[in-house]
Simulated assay, not measured.
Amino acid sequence: MKKLLPPHLFVLFALTMAGLCWALGSPHTLAKPYTLAAVVLLIGGLGLAFWAKRLFKQHQTTAFTFDAPGTLVTEGPFRLSRNPMYLGLALALFGVAILLGLAPSSMALALLFVIILDRWYISYEERAMHARFGESYTLYCAQVRRWL
């Protein structure tokens, strides 16, 4: 799973959700307020992820999960969440699930995506960040929550 980066996992889950909805004949339409909320989640989530990634690029550090961290970024969305890229992808995937008609399979997959992000990717990164930045990262963790 080390080769499967979170954005690729996001696309894989979104395609699986759509395929399951189609294969299971799940309803694909919701009333307009729900679809608007879904679009806001999808676009807002992707926007958050891209904003955070752009900050990494500005600080000349890597956004790749399994590369060694170069800089501790604590500005912008990182003031509110230690993982705004993952938070953005999770929000966007819940937006996809809503757009697919809130099918139970879509919601379950979106939840599984969050669990994988939390238990696999984030826990790996946190160990690397503690090893690289020590006390500064510990202080940052005490001030900023993992998700929100």
Rank of each mutant, 00 (worst) to 15 (best):
L4Y: 01
P6H: 05
F13E: 01
F13H: 03
F13R: 00
G19L: 05
A23I: 11
L24C: 14
P27L: 02
P27Q: 04
H28T: 15
T35S: 11
A38Q: 05
A38W: 00
V40W: 11
G44Y: 05
G44V: 05
G47S: 09
L48S: 08
A49V: 07
F50P: 10
F50T: 13
W51A: 13
A52R: 05
A52I: 08
A52D: 07
K53P: 01
K53D: 12
Q60P: 15
T61A: 13
A63L: 13
A63F: 11
A68W: 13
G70L: 12
L72Y: 06
V73S: 11
T74C: 12
E75L: 15
F78M: 11
R82C: 04
M85K: 01
L89T: 03
L91E: 02
L91W: 01
G95P: 08
I98N: 00
I98Y: 02
G101K: 03
G101P: 12
L102V: 07
A108C: 09
L109T: 01
L109G: 00
D118Q: 06
R119F: 07
W120H: 02
W120I: 01
I122Y: 02
Y124H: 07
E126Y: 09
F133I: 03
E135G: 09
S136F: 11
Y137F: 13
L139H: 15
Y140K: 08
C141L: 09
Q143W: 07
Q143T: 14
V144W: 02
R146E: 06
W147A: 03
W147C: 00
L148E: 08
